[in-house]
Structure formats: C-alpha cells, structure tokens
C-alpha cells in the first residue's frame, strides 16, 4: 500500500517538473517548482531521512519562493 502511494507521488513530481519546464508564465513555473520541492520533501521522509526532509522544508517552503518572486519582479521592472 505504501509502495502504491510512492508510485503515485513520483508521478506527481514528474508532472510538476514537466509542467514547470513548459510553462510560459514565470510565476506559474515557480509555483510548480514549489510543488516539486514539497513532494520531494515527502519522498525524503519516506526514504528515512528526516534531516534532509526538514532542510528541504525550511528552504523550499518560504525562502526559495520569495527569492524567485523578488527576482522576477526586479527583472520585469528593469525591462519596463
């Protein structure tokens, strides 16, 4: 049962990664990357590595998202 859940979760990460690659809007790519980070954290926990999962959680939940958003806003400002 846990193995079936693992398969579905890996399919979700694959879809998120492909979607983040092929999105035209930068904000949507950042959001799909955030989903990939969240699911990767669950997979680390499933494989028995809570330290790595906590690192992924602490960095991917707030910090990476905000840094990408601020960078997107700055570069768009320069081009306008």
């Amino acid at each position: 049962m846990m193995l079936a859940i693992d398969f579905v979760v890996v399919a979700v990460i694959f879809v998120a990664a492909v979607g983040a690659m092929s999105c035209k809007n930068l904000v949507s790519s950042v959001l799909l990357g955030g989903l990939a980070s969240l699911v990767a954290s669950y997979l680390f926990l499933r494989m028995g590595a809570p330290d790595v999962a906590m690192t992924e959680a602490a960095i991917g939940a707030a910090l990476t998202t905000v840094i990408f958003l601020v960078a997107t806003r700055r570069t768009q400002e320069v081009e306008e």
């Binding site: 809570p50 330290d51 999962a53 906590m54 690192t55 959680a57 602490a58 960095i59 910090l63």
Partner: peptide, 12 residues
C-alpha cells in the same frame, strides 16, 4: 532532526 542550517533558515 534538524540542526544549524534548518534552524537558521526558519529564523530567516
């Protein structure tokens, strides 16, 4: 589980 890097990221 945790440590310096994780705690520092939460403080940030």
């Amino acid at each position: 589980p945790g440590g310096g890097f994780q705690g520092g990221a939460v403080v940030a």
